[in-house]
Amino acid sequence: MSRIDQVFTALKAQQRCALIPFFTVGDPDLSCCLPTMHAMVESGADIIELGIPFSDPMADGPVIQRASERALKNNVRLLDVLNVVKTFRQTNTTTPIVLMGYANPIERMGVDAFVKTCHEVGVDGVLVVDYPPSEARALSQALAPFAIDPIFLIAPTTTDERVEEIAGLARGYVYYVSLRGVTGASHIDVADVQAQLNRIRQHVTIPVGVGFGIRDGETAKSIGRFADAVVVGSRIVETIEKAEKEKIPHEVGQLIHELRQALDNAL
């Protein structure tokens, strides 16, 4: 059983919803990463998604794009992202880490070399935003021998036929994009998300996380009533953007704590 499966199994037994924060590695610099990750775990994060900086993050909104730009200004490479995981694993062997990024930096390193290093440093899942199932074959094959889960997105516009195809490939959890648009947009329609999750669960047996547009405890709470996980990205990156550097772990921790409480109070 993968680390991600273990987390969801444990949460299910407690009837709790997983909280998955996201931030971009190297934003605002590499030294902040580990304290921020540990603060996230201490404040109630169940899984951490780490963004791999990319110069052209086409599916992201301005907030996450700026995070990538800040990281790239510090010359943060994919190798640095993997090193962060390696160091994190020296003190934390239980919290799953999912890497989220775009195909090009991974292909530049080489898909096989990337997967091998992921395995060595203790990565648990990989989500390549611009690898829809039809283009993800090489990555899926490379991941297969290891306990690293390929994570896929499902959109409101994804047809039942495609949901079925994704169900056949995905492991760990699937990530439902709760609105049309890019990361960081607003106007989430809770009833619509619930209806969509019911549709998705007719095909997908692994946990379903919901992300894009979850900006506060109130929304997290209402989504957490029926989702297996909520993913919070842009809101965290905004907090990082606004905070003084030394206070980032603390302020992010506070935000996670609020979201965690909101989710647990929903029960």
Partner: peptide, 9 residues
């Protein structure tokens, strides 16, 4: 077709 699932439809 290297795009996010959000664009596939």
């Amino acid at each position: 077709t290297f795009v996010s699932e959000t664009l596939i439809a």
